[in-house]
Design a protein around this nucleic acid. Structure first.
Length: 300
RNA sequence: GGGGGGGUAGCGAAGUGGCUAAACGCGGUUGACUGUAAAUCAAUUCUCUCCGAGUUCGGCGGUUCGAAUCCGUCCCCCCCCA
C-alpha cells in the first residue's frame, strides 16, 4: 500500500501551517479536504490559504468549482484520489489536510458511490410515510436512521432504487484503508480554540470579508447555492437584507463556528483512530513532525 | 410628584388558582454520521437520586385544601406626564 499522511482537526487548530512544514520537509504536495474551499471566490470567509501562504507548495482540491455548482463527497473522492495518485507517481507521499471528516474517510476507505445518484429529488411526502417505505425496502438502514432525518431517509430510498440497498452496498465494503495511513488530529483546549476562532473572525471582517460576500452573494438568487450554505456566508443574508447589524452577524458566525468545531471534534474522536496532538505545544509538534518524517522516509 | 407597563430557569419568552419543575426559541452539554457533511439529525439542560424526593417564577408576609398565577408590603427596571 502507498503511504498517505493525514493532518486533521477542527477549524483554526493550525492544520495548514503544520502541513506546510511537513510538505517542505518531504518536498511533497498537499491535498485539501474541505467542502467549502473548493469554491473559487470563497477565500476570506472560508479561511482558505492564500497563494502566498502556500509558499510554492502545490495544493490540490482547492478552487475547483464555481459558486453555482454542486459538490459532494463523490466528487471529492474522485478528485482527491486522482491527486493522490498523481503525487504518488512523482514518488512523493501526499499530505491530506482538512476538517471535513466524511471526505477524508471516503477517500481513505473503500466507500462506494454511484455517479447517477448525485441529486436526491425532494418528496412531498411526510417523514412518516418515507420512513415506512424505507422500513420496507431497507430495514437495516432504517434502523440506524432517525425518522426526523429526512435527508438520510431520502438518500437511502434513492440508493434502494438501484436494486441494491444502502446497507447491502456498505456490507460489501471491507472498511479498511486503501492506503498506508498515518493520521493525526490537531487539537487544543477549548477555551484557547474559541479565542482563536473569535480573533480569526475579527481579522476576516477587517480584511474584506464583507466585500467578498457582497461580490459573491448580492443577488438573492445566489442564496440557494450550495456554496452559500457554508458558515461565514449564510449568516450574512440577514445583514444584506439589513435585518441585523455587523456585530450581530459576527456573533452568529462565532457561535456557528464554535458549534462546528465541536461537531468536528466529536467526529474525529469517534469516527477515526488518529493520534491526537496538542497543537499548542511546540515540542510535541516538533516530535510529531519528526516522527511523521521518519515514517515517510522508511522503505516499506 | 402623577400615570402606565414590567421583573419567570444561562438568555429571550409563554403561562394569570390545581392537568406546571414551568410551553417554545436561543445558548450549553453529550452523541449519531458512507452523496448538500461548514450539512442533517438525536438526547439532555433547577438540585440530589433508580423509582422518587427537595428547592423554584424579584424579596418578605398573607389568603387558600392548593399560588408563578389572588391580596398586602418592600426593592428594582422601562415608558409617558410633571
Amino acid at each position: 500500500m502507498k503511504k498517505v499522511i493525514v493532518i486533521a482537526g477542527a477549524t483554526a487548530t493550525g492544520k495548514s501551517s503544520f502541513a506546510l512544514r511537513l510538505a517542505h520537509a518531504l518536498m511533497t504536495e498537499i491535498v485539501s479536504c474541505d467542502s467549502i474551499q473548493v469554491y473559487r471566490d470563497l477565500n476570506i470567509g472560508s479561511a482558505k490559504i492564500t497563494t502566498e501562504e502556500m509558499q510554492g507548495i502545490v495544493h490540490h482540491c482547492l478552487n475547483t468549482r464555481n459558486l453555482d455548482q454542486q459538490y459532494s463527497v463523490y466528487d471529492f473522492q474522485q478528485e482527491a484520489r486522482a491527486a493522490i495518485a498523481k503525487i504518488h507517481s512523482l514518488g512523493k507521499i501526499p499530505i491530506l489536510v482538512g476538517g471535513t471528516g466524511l471526505y477524508l474517510k471516503a477517500v481513505l476507505y473503500d466507500y462506494d458511490f454511484e455517479k447517477e445518484e448525485m441529486i436526491i429529488p425532494e418528496s412531498s411526502e411526510s417523514n412518516e410515510i418515507l420512513y415506512a417505505r424505507l422500513l420496507q425496502e431497507d430495514p437495516v438502514s432504517a434502523s440506524s436512521i432517525h425518522i426526523n432525518n429526512r435527508k438520510r431517509i431520502l438518500r437511502a430510498l434513492e440508493i434502494a432504487k438501484s436494486g441494491e440497498t444502502k446497507s447491502q452496498r456498505e456490507a460489501k465494503q471491507e472498511k479498511k484503508p486503501i492506503y498506508d495511513v498515518t493520521m493525526i488530529v490537531l487539537d487544543m483546549p477549548n477555551v484557547v480554540l474559541e479565542k482563536r476562532i473569535d480573533e480569526r473572525i475579527r481579522r476576516m471582517a477587517e480584511n474584506g470579508w464583507i466585500e467578498e460576500v457582497k461580490h459573491c452573494f448580492s443577488d438573492p438568487q445566489t442564496w440557494t447555492y450550495q456554496s452559500f450554505q457554508g458558515i461565514g456566508y449564510k449568516e450574512w443574508k440577514e445583514y444584506l437584507q439589513e435585518k441585523i447589524g455587523l456585530e450581530e452577524t459576527l456573533l452568529t458566525i462565532l457561535i456557528h463556528t464554535r458549534q462546528f468545531a465541536k461537531r468536528q471534534r466529536t467526529w474525529f474522536r469517534h469516527q477515526s483512530t488518529a493520534t491526537w496532538v496538542n497543537a499548542l505545544d511546540p515540542f510535541t509538534l516538533d516530535r510529531t513532525a519528526s516522527e511523521i518524517i521518519s515514517w515517510a522516509k522508511q522503505e516499506e
